[in-house]
Amino acid sequence: MTMQTNSEDLQRQSLSGLFWATCRREYLLSFRRKSDLVNPLIFFLMVATLFPLGVSPEPGFLAQLAPGVVWVAALLSTLLSMDALFRSDYEDGSLEQLLLSPQPLFLVVLAKVLAHWSVTGLALTVMAPLLGLMLFLPAEGMPGLMLSLLLGTPTLSLVGAIGAALTVGLRKGGVLISLLVLPLYIPVLIFGSSAVQAAVTGLPLGGYLALLGALLALALGLAPLAISAALRISMSS
């Protein structure tokens, strides 16, 4: 009996060890390849810089557009970074080792996506108030913007990873990811930017945040399984 609990303990330990080892590896990888790290953030910032130049620098007009522009920019820069998620693992053979490991694949995949999110989505969320300021978003809108991005960007990463896993075996997968994944991004975009708009006009935003949370819960539960299956299909060809 005690033997059994011991081995169960050991297994749990090795599973959480695997989770953290994968996170650690992903952080090391992204901090040693700094260009991949800053690319989405620069893109995010560039959209906000160019937008007033292209449309109109008038504060009232920009404030109206701000929720949508920040959200679209966040969505596109997440999408931009998605292609690299499994690409290098595929090219150097790490992905084969991952698939042949006796450890549960969805756990490694979840760790990879969460690590990826914390250097893209979370960083975008932290940067968002700056963009809000640049686009004259009223101060009342800031909490709504941060909260909606905090709940919405992990969903974008999880769903985007399904597309990345499906297209990793193709040479030009980048375009295909956008086609596969964009329709699934639309609900997140609608509820996200609506939450910001509600916050600006002083309406309650609990409902929007609850919907974003529900989408996140759904993605957190189902996406790792879909990503694992997609990786197996991609590798099997």
Binding site: S14, G17, A21, R25, L28, D92, G93, S94, S101, Q103
Partner: peptide, 23 residues
Amino acid sequence: HQAGVKAVLTPQENLRWYAALSP
């Protein structure tokens, strides 16, 4: 065919992750 070695990691870091994959 591909060695499964990450170029930006050190040999030790590469193998440590591999050890986490195989309990």
